[in-house]
Amino acid sequence: MTELLVVLQIAGRRCAVSAHDVKSVIELGTVTPVPRTPDFIAGIAALRSQSLTVIDCRRALGFESSQWPTDERAAVIANGGHSYALVVDRVEDITTATGAPGQVPGGFGPAWSRVATGMTETRTGPVLLLDLAMLIAGPEGARGEIETVA
């Protein structure tokens, strides 16, 4: 298994997404807030002529983002025809998985189970593999919240 992974630190935990999904890592400039959206949507930003939806991954998992440091850099991913910039604690490294993905007995806990597809070993230690589609969908609670707003 030699899949390239981008290692990100989210809410103090080491996570990884497939390097295929990450289009680039950018210095995030001005983020325009989007009023009346769930708080995990930090806003929109421009990447050249493209518009990016900025997702605060800590909040998307249901954590308070103020507890964690924020990297200037964000990972740009594409999902469902739209581009997103992921705000994380830190964009750590690019590495290769050394083992096959596996599960942890007892699960990853409620917040993480929703977005985690499993764990894998890398040269720099174990990381949690994330499902990007679930991550950018935001915390489960957000759905009800949006409905009341709309």
Binding site: P38, I44, S49, H82, I136, V149
Partner: peptide
């Protein structure tokens, strides 16, 4: 006009974004 991500569209206030 560029389309917005579905999570943003859901709030029903915006039709798109523009630069």
């Amino acid at each position: 006009v560029k389309p917005l991500a579905p999570a943003v569209m859901k709030c029903g206030l915006y039709a798109g974004s523009t630069l």
